Amino acid sequence: MSSPAPPPVLLPVRARRTRRGPLLRELVGSVLREERAAQGRTLAGVAAASGVSLPHLSQVERGGKEPSSEVVAAICAALGLPLAELLRRAAGEPLDVTSSVGTSPVRTGARPAAPAGTVSLSLAA
């Protein structure tokens, strides 16, 4: 006769790793949502203009989905938001503009210290 099977051993559930700051998809989504709201546009309107489904656009704005570069480009085009501007705003880098006749806005060489809990992206000018 065989002995009864031993009781199952319960293993501890691994704790989620804590993040140091927001993910890129969260930063991008936040900028897209802020821009859409600033323009007074609806999710449905931007979804239709970009060709991105409304549920997917909502998930992207909330940082729940990692959008492809094509999806980001389509949303940016629908909002009239250049990709470089999206990334600059996601990185939290201010654009210093000097008002001089005949010159275009220039980025200063000095980089401000990033606030705690932010992700720093380097954007080539």
Rank of each mutant, 00 (worst) to 15 (best):
A74R: 15
G40I: 04
E85L: 04
D96T: 09
A110S: 12
P115A: 12
L43A: 07
A48V: 02
H56A: 14
A125W: 02
V46K: 00
S50I: 08
R25S: 07
V101W: 02
H56F: 13
G21V: 01
V97A: 10
L27I: 05
A113R: 15
V52D: 05
E85T: 14
P7C: 02
V31C: 00
P4R: 15
A37G: 09
G45R: 04
L83W: 08
L83T: 10
S50K: 06
R41Q: 15
L32H: 05
V72F: 02
A49N: 00
E61T: 03
T118G: 02
A74C: 11
G92L: 03
L24S: 14
V52W: 01
V106K: 07
P105G: 08
P22C: 06
S2R: 14
L11N: 05
V13A: 14
R19F: 06
R41Y: 06
L57I: 07
E61W: 03
R88F: 08
G40A: 05
A84L: 06
T118M: 01
A5D: 06
A113W: 05
L86F: 07
R33I: 00
L11F: 04
V71C: 09
S100L: 11
R88V: 14
V31P: 00
K65Q: 12
G92K: 02
T98N: 07
A44C: 00
A125V: 13
G80V: 04
V119R: 15
L27G: 00
L81N: 06
G40C: 09
S3G: 11
A113N: 11
